[in-house]
Design a protein around this nucleic acid. Structure first.
Lengths: 244, 244
DNA sequence: ATTACTTAGCGTATTTTATACGTTAAGTTT
DNA sequence: AAACTTAACGTATAAAATACGCTAAGTAAT
C-alpha cells in the first residue's frame, strides 16, 4: 500500500541565506552496494524522492524536507512541473536511479518545490548532513538530470515572489536587524539599496516589529532587533490597485 | 509508442472575456456507447487529457487547446499540479473516466494550465463546439472531480499575474478601445477605476499603441482603437525596485 | 436643425510615495 | 581620547497616484 509511484517525483530547491550569499542545499548521490557505475561520487542533486502511492504531493515534499533538514513546519511552495520526456535521458544517471529505486523507471514527471530555511536554525540529521552541502547559487556545478534548470526556475520564482510577498523573513533568523534584511534583498535581487531610504520604507510596515533588544557581540554600535509579525501582516494586507 | 500515460494528465482552464464577464470554456462529458452510468449528461468538466508517453507536458496542453478552440499559438501557462490521492474519489465520475480511457486508472496527477483566448477570434471545430460552453466564473455549477478547485486556483493566479504582466490584452480583440481595457480590469479584479486616471496611466505605456482607426457601429462618439505592441513591451521592461 | 443623450478625451490641483543626499549617535578597538 | 565602524534620523526634491471638473464628438429623438 505504501509502494513508491515510479511515475511521479518531488524535488526540493532549499534556499538558505548565510548573510553574504544565497545558497542551495544539495546532496551527494548515494553510494550503491555493487558500485560499478561510471559516475563520480561528487555529483550533486536536489533532495527529492519518488512519491509513494497514497501520499499527497505536498506531503511528499514535506517528508523530503523533514528528512533532510529536521525542520517540520517550513515554507514550501510548489512552483513548477518538469515533464520533458527526455529529462532523464542521461544514461549514466538513469542507470543509477534505477539501481537506487529498484524500480523499472520509464518516465518521471517531477513536481518542483522551493523552500526557504533559516540556515542556523535548521537541524539536519547527522547521516544526511554528511552528504548535504550548501552551495552558493553563483557557484553551482553541473548537477544530475535537469536539476540545474529546476534551480534556475526556482531562483526566478523566488525573485518574483520576493517583490510582492513578505517571504524574505523566512531566510533570516527569527530576530534580525534591518541591515540583515537589506543585505538579503540586495543579494537576492542583485541591486543596491540606499540604506536611509530602505529604513524609511520598512519603518512604515506595520508587520515589522522592533524588539526591546539589541544585537550582541558585534564590534560596533549594536542595532535593534526586529521580528516579522505575521498576524499584523495578514490584517494589513490590502489589495491596492494593479499594475499592467 | 504513442500510448496514453495513465498516471499523468493535463487540464486547461480557458478564460475568455465577452466585454461583460470573465468566462471559462467547459465541456460536457462524452456520452459512452454502453451508457448506463448514473451521471447526468450535463456534468461539465475542464478540457483535458491524459498525456501520451512521448509527449511533453506543454505539448499536451497545446494539443488539447488546439482540438478545442482551433487556436494554435496561444497564451498558455502552467500554474499548478493537483495530486491529492483522493482527487478522483468520486466513484461515478471515476467509472466514467475508466470507461472513456479504456485504461486501468489508479491515481492521476494532473498538471493544470490556464489559457487566455480572444473569444471572438477563436474558432472551435464544429463537433467540439456542440459540447463546449462558455460559463461565467460567477455562475459555475459543480464540475467533475476537483475541477472547481482547479478553476479557483487558476482565477487567483490570473488575478495575481494581471498585476504585473501585460496579459489582459490576450483576452481582448487585437484592436480594442481603452474602455474595453478598463472594463476588463474592473471585471477581473473586481474593482472600480477612475476613467480619467486610468487613461492617464495607460497613456504613458510605450507598448500601448494608438491606431489611426476608430470604433465603428456604436451609437455614440467612437473611440480610437489601440493595440498591444509586444516588442515595445519587451524593450521597455525594466525591473524597478521591489516590494516587501 | 435643434435638443437630448452617451461616451470619449483632456486638464488641474492635491496627496502620497520614492529618490537623493547630509548629518549625528552609539558603540568598539587602538 | 582618538580612530573607526555601523546605526539611525532628517530634509529637500522629484515622481507617481488620486480626486475631481469640464469639453468634445458622435448618434438618436423631436
Amino acid at each position: 500500500m505504501n509502494r513508491l509511484n515510479p511515475h511521479i517525483s518531488v524535488d526540493c530547491v532549499i534556499f538558505g541565506f548565510d548573510e553574504k550569499q544565497l545558497k542551495v542545499l544539495l546532496i551527494e548521490r548515494e553510494r550503491l552496494q555493487d558500485e560499478n557505475l561510471d559516475i563520480p561520487m561528487e555529483v550533486l542533486k536536489l533532495p527529492g524522492s519518488l512519491i509513494s502511492d497514497a501520499e499527497d504531493l505536498d506531503a511528499s515534499a514535506h517528508r523530503v524536507l523533514l528528512e533532510l533538514t529536521g525542520l517540520d513546519k517550513i515554507f514550501l511552495h510548489q512552483f513548477s512541473v518538469f515533464g520533458d520526456p527526455s529529462r532523464l535521458a542521461n544514461t549514466k544517471h538513469l542507470a543509477w536511479l534505477k539501481a537506487t529505486s529498484g524500480l523499472p523507471i520509464e518516465r518521471v514527471v517531477t513536481v518542483a518545490y522551493y523552500s526557504l530555511v533559516k540556515i542556523k536554525e535548521s537541524n539536519p540529521s547527522e547521516t544526511l548532513l554528511s552528504r548535504a552541502k550548501w552551495i552558493s547559487v553563483n557557484e553551482l556545478p553541473q548537477l544530475v538530470f535537469d536539476h540545474n534548470i529546476i534551480i534556475n526556475k526556482a531562483l526566478k520564482t523566488l525573485r518574483k515572489e520576493l517583490r510582492t510577498e513578505p517571504i524574505g523573513f523566512e531566510l533570516l533568523p527569527k530576530k534580525f536587524t534591518l541591515r540583515q534584511l537589506q543585505n538579503l534583498y540586495e543579494v537576492i535581487m542583485g541591486i543596491n539599496l540606499d540604506n536611509r531610504n530602505f529604513r524609511k520604507r520598512v519603518g512604515k510596515l506595520s508587520y515589522l516589529a522592533v524588539l526591546p533588544e539589541k544585537q550582541k557581540g558585534v564590534s560596533h554600535k549594536p542595532a535593534f532587533l526586529y521580528k516579522f509579525d505575521k498576524k499584523a501582516f495578514e490584517k494589513e494586507r490590502k489589495d491596492v490597485g494593479f499594475v499592467i
